[in-house]
Design a protein around this nucleic acid. Structure first.
Length: 476
RNA sequence: CGGGGUGUAGCGCAGCCUGGUUAGCGCACCUGCCUUGGGAGCAGGGGGUCGGAGGUUCGAAUCCUCUCACCCCGACCA
């Protein structure tokens, strides 16, 4: 059992913080609400970037970079947008020792600066679509912060596209949510439910917002990605019009979509256990660690000769850690690499040299296997593949176990107050009913799932007609 | 901004009430020996403007005043 990590059953929040700090993924910075992402955490972000970026490029997007500082007047151009973001913005008031003529906002998101530029770049339908993404930092002045899940400054990617038609913009919005769903499940092994946000939960300035929602091990929901159809709101605010084939002029249709370093928090809370982090193989920059074991110098020589040959064989395909440090005992090393979530550990001692095999241990289920030296590369490959699949299955099973179809409001209250989970209930579409549930239970409507039964019912709050079930849950 | 709490070595803490040797302890760190298949042991060692400022006193980590910072709980949110 891990030292220094609070068990999930004792204090889930403490467990989460312990994992982040002790696996050396992040640390608190001197400024309240901001954090340092350490190499172990940044490695995961790099893997997220690499794989997502490829998916963006494969769907026709290109990267660019827009500046950090946004003129105050830009922020104020879209009414809903400024209302939504103004309270949580950091503002630069001085530069070069002088008060500024116009205050500059540190971007909480980049719609305004980007659309001010799109105005310059878009003249005709031939200039469309524009499919730009940027990897950047943003800042939102949060009251209460938590490592990775909610920090004032965070890293993300934001896609901003411009289209000639409403249909095309909607298609893009849905497509990118699909990319996020695929990425979450295939790479992060996090099962997600795609759906639409209710009006009260949508992005400030959007026509509507789509999202993917995941369940954490405390049964709370975490929004893992969002995709917004912005309609013509920003085009109108920034007067971005184009001339169509037939000579008519109209406003451009927009989308924006993003995922952030919050995904790392989701990764931790979906897969990790009381011994530490568990990284899905496809996101592990270093998926294998080898721990050689010896007593005498003579043994060391033999074990290391054997180990080095295996290391050379594996390193052609994988980035491998060879932990031959002399000052720590094997047990210590096992615990340390488990804490850091390395997917596969290979133990090699004198007995293995003698029998021509190695011991292989998977991080997710901790099972030890004695495998033969021959074919070790294939075995590593197949175990990593299997582990990736098993992690997704396990997370999906957990989510299903705590998902309920409920038609009685008292029962909803009871479940939320006890174990928690995803509650599928009918809702009439009235914001007042949504608010009532929030006030009384702290649960909110996480999304209106894309895939839902065509089932008429009665709103769980007011009893009016409903076209289908939505998901209620407490959320991060 | 309300309520609660904490500032003493890298981390976690004791000492403060009742002022008085050189400010301690555990972990971590360094050196050596010894160990190595699930977080070893022994010996030696380095490391502190006691959050900051002012005051009381022969003497302040300790008492008084002011101040700063951070954490937890609530109101805002990806």
């Amino acid at each position: 059992m891990a030292k220094n990590i609070t068990a999930r059953s004792v204090d889930y929040s403490k467990w989460y913080t312990d994992i982040v700090l002790q696996s050396k993924m992040a640390d608190y910075s001197p400024v309240k609400g901001s954090m340092v992402i350490r190499p172990n955490g940044y490695a995961i972000w790099e893997m997220i970037q690499q794989n997502l970026d490829k998916m963006f490029k494969d769907t026709g997007h290109v990267n660019a970079y827009f500046p950090l500082l946004i003129p105050e007047s830009f922020m104020k151009k879209e009414a809903e947008h400024v209302e939504g973001f103004a309270p949580e913005c950091a503002v630069v008031t001085h530069g070069g020792g002088q008060p500024l003529e116009e205050h500059l906002y540190i971007r909480p998101t980049s719609e305004t600066i980007i659309w001010s530029m799109y105005k310059k770049w878009i003249m005709s339908y031939r200039d469309l679509p524009i499919l730009i993404n940027q990897w950047a930092n943003v800042m939102r002045w949060e009251m209460r912060t938590r490592l990775f899940l909610r920090t004032s400054e965070f890293l993300w990617q934001e896609g901003h596209t411009a289209h000639a038609t409403a249909e095309e913009a909607e298609e893009e919005t849905v497509k990118m949510l699909g990319v996020y769903k695929q990425f979450a499940e295939e790479y992060m092994a996090i099962p997600v439910i795609p759906g639409k946000k209710t009006d009260s939960e949508k992005f400030a300035g959007a026509k509507h917002t789509y999202c993917i929602e995941a369940m954490m091990q405390d049964r709370k929901a975490l929004q893992a990605g969002t995709s917004h159809n912005l309609g013509q709101n920003f085009a109108k605010a920034f007067d971005v019009q184009f001339q169509d084939k037939d000579g008519s002029r109209s406003f451009v249709y927009a989308t924006s979509w993003g995922v952030s370093t919050r995904l790392i928090g989701a990764l931790i809370m979906t897969h990790s256990d009381d011994d530490g982090l568990v990284i899905p193989p496809k996101l592990a920059q270093r998926p294998v660690v080898i721990v050689p074991i010896w007593k005498s110098d003579e043994e060391k020589e033999q074990v290391m000769a054997y180990t080095n040959a295996i290391y050379d064989e594996l390193k052609a395909d994988y980035s491998i850690i060879l932990d031959d440090r002399d000052q720590y005992k094997p047990g210590f090393k096992f615990a340390e690499w488990e804490l850091q979530g390395i997917p596969i550990r290979i133990e090699i001692g004198p007995k293995d040299v003698e029998k021509n095999n190695v011991v292989l241990v998977r991080r997710d289920n901790k099972q030890k296997q004695f495998i033969s030296r021959e074919g070790i590369l294939d075995k590593v490959k197949s175990e990593l593949t299997q582990m990736q699949a098993d992690m997704l299955d396990k997370a999906r099973e957990y989510r299903e176990e705590y998902s309920y179809k409920i038609d009685d409001y008292d029962e909803l209250k009871k479940i939320i107050a006890n174990d928690g989970g995803f509650i599928y209930s009918h809702w009439c579409g009235d914001a007042a009913c949504e608010q009532k549930v929030k006030d009384e239970t702290k649960a909110t409507i996480r999304c209106i799932p894309f895939e839902r039964e065509n089932e008429k019912g009665k709103c769980i709050v007011c009893g009016n007609e409903s076209d289908g079930r939505v998901i209620f849950a407490k959320a991060y």
